[in-house]
Amino acid sequence: MSTTANTSSPRSGVRRVLHDNGLGIVFGVLFLLMLGGQAVSGHAYFNDQQISEGVEPVSLGHYLTSSSFAVDVVENWQSEYLQFFLYIFATVWLVQRGSSESKEVDDVGPESERDQRIGPYAGPGSPRWARTGDWRTVVFSRSLGLVMGGIFLLSWGAQSVAGWAAFNAEQLTSRQDPVTWPAYLGEPEFWNRTTQNWQSEMLAVGSMAVLGVYLRQRGSPESKPVGAAHADTGETG
């Protein structure tokens, strides 16, 4: 009685997982590396400030649980998720002729149920909430933007609390009175931290949308095909 050898192996299975999820895995690893680099360099910078002010330096563990480290981390998170949130919703209604980041110029709006393959037009492989045609489809139809917006609000709130704690720590070090959280929200320090991140995100998104009209990156889905005309819109390479 003959048997067919099973050519698959755990090793090949691992390679397949890594291949199929390489983008998320690589950027996840890079995130952890960069966060570790920020922790080490931020700790060194923080202790330099402590010493210059005649205060004892702190351990790495103490720094990682401090409001100074927390505010430096989450102030960047909130600006990134604001960028995604605005871009996801803006590209429903706004277009950029010639950009791969844009829909076709005549396709503004949420599009029809047939185009979006929801309700009666859903296929057998469509997510369950896309097939129901009720409130679940309404929520699922906007779930990406809602989650990005929610993460933005949570991280911005975390930034305000961590920034408030760090601000009051500096106030006490300078022998000044601490402020309440609502009062901190009106401080120039809070809005300086916020807007310096926001302006850079808006510049980056706008640059990507416009530069992609005239420039190419071969093989990237973020770019049009190299030979595509500048006026071609919504094409990816």
Rank of each mutant, 00 (worst) to 15 (best):
A5R: 02
G219H: 01
E101D: 11
V14T: 09
A228H: 00
L23P: 09
S100G: 14
E113S: 05
V213E: 14
G98F: 10
V213Q: 15
A231V: 03
Q196K: 08
G163V: 01
T195E: 01
R11E: 12
D134A: 02
S200Y: 12
Q78E: 00
R175I: 06
L18V: 13
R16I: 15
A90Y: 06
Q96V: 15
Q49K: 12
R131N: 00
G13V: 11
A204H: 08
A5Q: 03
A122R: 04
G109N: 06
W198K: 01
I118R: 05
G133M: 05
A204G: 11
G234E: 02
L35H: 09
E170V: 09
V95T: 05
D20C: 02
D177E: 11
S8H: 09
W198M: 01
D48L: 13
N197G: 08
G237V: 04
A165R: 10
L154H: 05
M148V: 07
M148N: 07
G157K: 04
V226M: 03
E170Q: 06
V73D: 02
E187Q: 08
R175E: 12
Q116R: 10
S100N: 15
S112A: 08
W164Q: 02
F167H: 06
L154W: 01
F190Q: 09
D115G: 06
G125K: 04
W129P: 03
G212C: 13
R142C: 15
Q50F: 06
G13R: 09
Y214I: 04
V147E: 07
L215V: 13
S102V: 08
W164I: 11
R218Q: 10
G119P: 04
H19K: 13
R15T: 15
R142V: 15
G22D: 14
W198E: 04
F69D: 00
F167W: 03
W93H: 02
G42Q: 03
V29Q: 03
L18T: 13
N21Q: 00
E170P: 01
A166N: 14
V213P: 07
T91M: 10
S102K: 09
Q96C: 12
V147M: 12
V213H: 10
S99R: 03
S41F: 14
E187A: 10
G237I: 02
